[in-house]
C-alpha cells in the first residue's frame, strides 16, 4: 500500500499572522513551519505501517507551495515519510481552494496512492475543505475529521464526530481521509531522522509535469476574489486578572460574580 500525506508550510503560530493589505493575501514573511495538524496525518501513516495489518510500501509527503515549503517536506520526512513531492510553480501562486484542490489532485494522480491523508485544517487558511475537493477530483471516497481508523486489506473503518454524535463509516480503498487532531499523539523526530531528512529523495514538479491546465490555477484560475478586508466589529474587552495571590484572585472572582448576582 502506498500512502500520500498532504502537508503544508504555514506561519509559525508563535508569530503574528496577518494579511498583506496590498496583495490581500496572507503575509508569508516571518518564521514558517510544518502545519501542526499535518503531523497527525504523518503519524497516522506511520501507525498503519507499524500496525502490520497491511503492508505499507511507501509514505510520500506531498506539498504545493513556494521554494521555502521544502522545509515542511524535510520535517515530514524526519517524522517518517520515505520521500517527498514538491509541486512548485509561479503559476500556482494565488490559488483559491478550488484551484489548490485541483492542482494537488493532479500531483497525486501521478503517484496513484491507495490512501491520501490530510490534516483537519491548515493553521493559516483554516478552510477544512481541501480533502473533500481533492477526493472528488480523484474520484475517491472521502471522510474528514476522522479520529479512529482501522485498516484492513482494501478498506478502512473510520470513526468521526458529525452533527449528531459519532459516526462509524466503512470506506473502500483507495480513499482520501482528513484526520482530526485527536487521532494520535505525533512522535518527536529523532536527531538522526532530522539530520538524514535532507538526503531522502525529493522531486520538484511544475504544472506541466503533472498535467495541470494553467488556466485553472493561480489567481487567474481562482473562482473567488477577495474584495476587501475589514476589522472585526469593536468589542468591549473584558477584565483581566493575573493570578499572583490565589486567595486574592478568588476574592476578586467571587466579588465579580456577586456584583452580577450570579451567586
Amino acid at each position: 500500500m502506498k500512502i500520500c500525506c498532504l502537508v503544508k508550510e504555514v506561519p509559525d503560530a508563535a508569530v503574528q499572522k496577518r494579511i498583506d493589505a496590498g496583495t490581500k493575501r496572507l503575509d508569508r514573511s516571518g518564521e514558517r513551519t510544518l502545519n501542526p495538524f499535518d503531523t497527525h496525518g504523518i503519524e497516522a501513516a506511520m501507525q498503519i505501517r507499524e500496525g502490520g495489518a497491511v503492508a505499507v510500501d511507501e509514505i510520500v509527503a506531498v506539498t504545493m507551495g513556494p521554494d521555502t515549503a521544502v522545509r515542511a517536506l524535510h520535517k515530514s520526512v524526519a517524522l517518517g515519510a520515505d520521500r517527498s513531492l514538491h509541486l512548485s510553480d509561479p503559476a500556482l501562486s494565488g490559488s483559491d481552494v478550488c484551484a489548490t484542490g485541483y492542482a494537488l489532485a493532479k500531483a497525486l494522480e501521478t503517484e496513484q496512492p491507495d490512501l491520501v491523508l490530510l490534516g483537519q485544517q491548515s493553521d493559516d487558511g483554516e478552510c477544512y475543505t481541501i480533502g473533500a475537493v481533492v477526493a472528488d477530483h480523484l474520484k475517491m471516497p472521502s471522510l474528514t475529521q476522522v479520529i479512529k481508523m482501522d485498516v484492513s486489506e482494501g478498506k478502512l473503518v473510520c470513526q468521526r464526530q458529525a452533527e449528531y454524535g459519532y459516526d462509524t463509516v466503512e470506506i473502500a480503498l483507495p480513499a482520501v481521509i482528513s484526520v482530526g487532531d485527536a487521532i494520535n499523539e505525533p512522535r518527536y523526530p529523532s536527531l538522526k531522522a532530522i539530520m538524514g531528512a535532507k538526503k531522502k529523495p525529493l522531486d520538484t514538479k511544475g504544472t506541466g509535469d503533472v498535467g495541470i491546465d494553467p488556466s485553472q490555477v493561480g489567481e487567474a484560475g481562482s473562482k473567488t476574489q477577495v474584495l476587501g478586508i475589514n476589522p472585526p466589529p469593536p468589542k468591549q474587552s473584558g477584565e483581566i486578572i493575573e493570578d499572583e495571590d490565589t486567595n486574592e484572585t478568588v476574592e476578586k472572582i467571587v466579588a465579580w460574580l456577586e456584583e452580577r448576582k450570579l451567586i
Binding site: 472521502s142 475529521q145 473562482k223
Partner: peptide, 23 residues
C-alpha cells in the same frame, strides 16, 4: 454551519469548478 455542509460544499467546488467560502 455543520460538518456535512463543509464536505458537500467542498465536493461541489470540485465537481462544478465553483468558488467556495467557508465559516
Amino acid at each position: 454551519g455543520g460538518l456535512l455542509g463543509f464536505e458537500i460544499g467542498a465536493g461541489l467546488t470540485a465537481r462544478l469548478g465553483a468558488g467556495v467560502t467557508m465559516e
